[in-house]
């Protein structure tokens, strides 16, 4: 029997000058589960995601992460001059047709936006496009860095429901400040502390 591996990180160290952000962080993110990373601002949550994704070099430590990966970054990182559907096709290629993209957009409250240039959208709309792009891409592991930032309560509820359906059974590492989001999505919770950025607390939502 082949057991699929989750994301394994061991003894991660990362500093910005004299500011130690990760100091020997180790964890095994369970395959097929949603792990929320919580903690105060500046405790290294986004840095942790960035080093696991490989976009930030580590000082030392080992990261084992199955590929391909997908992500919603802290910023939207959309191409402003492309249309919404072109932004999605940029990562998915021709896997989805116009109709399929339009149908998915309408499920997150972006009906008829597929041919709009991203620069014409509001902040909340851009956030939803960034999330949809991440969910429609092929991935083994999905990284979400405060994916519902800037959404009003009703939209957030709609998008969270949509998102939950899409990530069921997938390995997801999810940074949030919001207890409700944490409770809604997470199978496991990791709390980072500013002092040394080791796991301060570990909760299994099922227990």
């Amino acid at each position: 029997m082949i057991i699929e591996m989750g994301v394994i990180v061991s003894d991660l160290k990362k500093s910005y000058g004299s500011n130690v952000v990760l100091n020997g962080f180790s964890h095994e993110f369970t395959n097929g589960k949603v792990t929320a990373v919580v903690g105060q601002s500046g405790c290294g949550k986004s840095t942790l995601l960035a080093v696991i994704m490989g976009i930030l070099p580590l000082d030392s430590g080992i990261v084992q992460c199955p590929k391909p990966i997908s992500a919603v970054f802290q910023e939207n990182r959309l191409c402003d001059n492309l249309t919404v559907s072109a932004n999605i096709r940029l990562v998915t290629g021709k896997k989805y047709g116009e109709r399929e993209i339009a149908a998915q957009l309408s499920q997150i409250g972006l009906n008829g936006c597929e041919n709009k240039a991203v620069r014409e959208l509001s902040g909340g709309m851009k956030r939803r496009v960034a999330l949809l792009r991440a969910l429609m891409a092929d991935f083994e592991v999905l990284f979400l860095d405060e994916p519902f930032k800037g959404l009003d309560n009703d939209t957030k509820k709609l998008v969270m429901e949509y998102c939950k359906g899409k990530i069921a059974g997938k390995t997801v590492i999810f940074v949030t400040h919001d207890d409700c989001e944490c409770e809604f999505f997470s199978d496991e919770v990791i709390e980072l502390r500013i002092e040394d950025a080791r796991i301060a607390d570990y909760k299994d939502q099922d227990t």
């Binding site: 490989g54 590929k67 997908s70 992500a71 990182r77 072109a86 940029l90 990562v91």
Partner: peptide
């Protein structure tokens, strides 16, 4: 940061050129 995004999603070079640079 768009270059980082492209490498995370593994966007092929031609699509990257048109979608990110040319646009």
């Amino acid at each position: 940061k768009l270059k980082e995004m492209a490498s995370i999603f593994g966007i092929p070079p031609w699509r990257r050129f048109v979608g990110i640079y040319l646009s």
